[in-house]
Amino acid sequence: MSNDHEVLVDKEKRNDLKVKEERKEGEPTPAFKGASWAALLVGVASYLIGLFNATMELNEKGFYFAVLVFGLYSAISLQKAVRDKDEGVPVTTIYYGLSWFALIVSISLMAIGLYNAGSVVLSEKGFFGMAFVLSLFAAITVQKNIRDTQRAREKG
C-alpha cells in the first residue's frame, strides 16, 4: 500500500515539473524555434559554401559576402522597427525609413549583382538568390522568436 502511495506522489511531482516546463503564453514552440534557427544556418551556410566554391574573383566574393551581411542586418533592423512601432514603442521616422531603405538596397544590390554577373551560370544565380532570401526570412523569424520568448517570460 505504501509503495502505491509513493508511486502516485512521484507521478504528481513529475506532473508538477511538466507544468513548470511548459511554454508561456505567446512563446513560440521549441519546434518552431529550432526550425527557424535551422533555416538560418542552412541559408547562411549554403550561401557561404557556394560563395567559397564559386569561380568568381575575390573582390566579387567580397561584394556578395558584404551584401549578405548587410541584408541580414537590415532585415532584422526593419523587423524590429516595424514591431516596435506596432507595439507603441517610439521609433523615429528617420530610423524607420532608413531600415526600409537599407533592406531595399540590399535586395537590389543582390538582384543587380546577380543579373550582371557574367561569370556565374544561371543555376548558380538562382542558388545564391534562394539562399539569400532564405537567410533574410530566417533571420527575421529568429529575431521575432527571441523577442516573443523574452516578452512571454517577462509577463509570466
Rank of each mutant, 00 (worst) to 15 (best):
F128M: 03
V105Y: 04
V69R: 01
A131G: 05
I112F: 06
V91W: 05
N3V: 15
S74N: 00
W100F: 09
F128K: 00
F65I: 01
E25V: 13
S119H: 09
Y64M: 07
K61A: 06
A38H: 12
I146S: 15
A139P: 02
A111V: 12
Y96H: 05
N53K: 12
W100C: 02
P28V: 00
L98G: 09
L136A: 03
N145F: 00
E124K: 09
G156R: 09
F32P: 12
D4W: 10
S119R: 08
G113C: 01
A131Q: 07
V67I: 00
S119E: 09
V133S: 11
S36G: 08
L8M: 10
T92S: 10
G50A: 02
A39T: 09
R151E: 12
N15W: 11
Q79E: 15
V142S: 00
K20H: 10
I94K: 12
S123E: 15
G97K: 05
L8Y: 09
R83I: 14
G43W: 00
G26S: 04
K33Y: 12
F52D: 14
I146P: 07
P30V: 09
L41Y: 13
F132S: 03
P28C: 02
I112E: 04
T141K: 14
Y95C: 08
K61N: 04
L48T: 04
I49H: 05
E57Q: 08
T92D: 14
S119F: 05
G88E: 00
I94Q: 14
F52S: 11
G50C: 03
G62W: 01
A131R: 03
G129K: 06
T141I: 12
A111L: 10
V9P: 03
R151K: 08
V121N: 13
I104A: 11
R14P: 07
F65W: 05
V91K: 04
K80V: 09
T55E: 12
A138E: 03
T92R: 12
T93N: 15
Y73H: 13
S106I: 00
E12N: 14
G26T: 03
L8E: 06
Q143A: 15
V121T: 12
S119K: 07
L41R: 14
L114D: 03
K33Q: 12
V91S: 04
L103T: 04
V19Y: 13
T55A: 10
A75G: 06
A38I: 13
R147G: 10
I146R: 12
V42F: 09
T29P: 04
T149Q: 02
V89P: 02
P28E: 02
N59V: 10
G126W: 06
G118D: 07
V19L: 13
S77N: 13
D16L: 14
I140T: 08
G26Q: 03
Y115I: 10
K33A: 11
A152T: 02
L103Y: 00
E25Q: 15
E87F: 05
G97C: 02
A31G: 13
A35E: 15
E57Y: 04
S99A: 07
F128W: 06
L134F: 11
A117Q: 07
F132R: 02
Y115F: 13
K125I: 01
K18D: 15
N53W: 08
N145W: 00
T29N: 04
S77C: 08
